[in-house]
Design a protein around this nucleic acid. Structure first.
Lengths: 143, 143
DNA sequence: ATAAATGCAAATCGTTTGCAACGGA
DNA sequence: TCCGTTGCAAACGATTTGCATTTAT
């Protein structure tokens, strides 16, 4: 259970497991993939849970620190986060029409990147690849 | 000359080639790669050219529209732009220590992406790949 | 002349922070 | 109790916008 990770992290740092943190943490599970702080804040509000935006932001930072979630990238709608604990690394296709995010993973791409890094004497830590375009559904709509 | 592109674009849209636009446009050439609006604004100021931030932002949008520059991504330091006209597509390695950006291009990566798109019935328009890690110089510093 | 473009300052939006009140340990 | 945490509202930084003034055509 991921809650253990959070608990240990907090304890090790002398921090406390508060209701706000617990709530934010639990709610991140309600997302399949990407989410932004505002949306998370609203979902919490909907469910009647009283947490301030400030605490949402503060808790998201914490969850990043302990490796349960990760900043994906900044967008017009704010910073996107994603649950990563126990997830395999993957990349994204982003539909410019409906906004759908398709996750994919390619062994080949990973391998080639390693080769490129070696070639350029770069020590790769992580990467993000986003392919923008149109998903199957939206291609059809256009025709 | 890229100025032709801009001129034609403006004329076609019934817009005017003003001093501010001209200045912003010319100044984007002073960058090898990425730049953000604030830095461009400051460079203009340095050179004694009087252009407001508002006009910098407005002109950058225009230059994007006519395909001379492109938004690369949003960062803590604001939106990064890059000159693209006549440039080949490329991807980036980003040194987390010194901030250096290394450009690279891989035919293999392009090809695999096309294959992946086909597989997933996705119509790819463009993509961005960023590998984060440490450049040669910074790896040495650490040891 | 006239419609577009400018600079300015105010507005916006996402995010952070100072601080007094609150609440886990 | 003690110190970390909260909510709030103010502060922030990047970007946009309304508007009166300037300027290209």
């Amino acid at each position: 259970m991921e809650k253990r990770i959070l608990n240990k992290f907090l304890k090790d740092k002398g921090l406390r497991l508060t209701k706000a943190r617990e709530a934010v943490f639990q709610r991140t599970f309600s997302y399949q993939g990407h989410f932004n702080p505002e949306s998370l804040y609203l979902r919490l509000k909907e469910t009647g849970i009283k947490v301030s935006r400030a605490s949402v932001y503060r808790t998201l930072s914490l969850l990043c620190e302990c490796g349960l979630i990760e900043k994906v990238r900044k967008t017009e709608e704010g910073t996107l986060y994603e649950y990563i604990f126990g997830h395999e690394h993957h990349d994204h296709m982003h539909c410019l029409s409906c906004g759908e995010i398709i996750e994919f993973y390619s062994e080949d791409i990973e391998r080639i990147q390693e080769e490129l890094c070696k070639e350029l004497h770069f020590k790769g830590i992580n990467h993000s690849l986003e392919i923008r375009g149109y998903c199957k559904k939206c291609q059809k709509k256009k025709n």
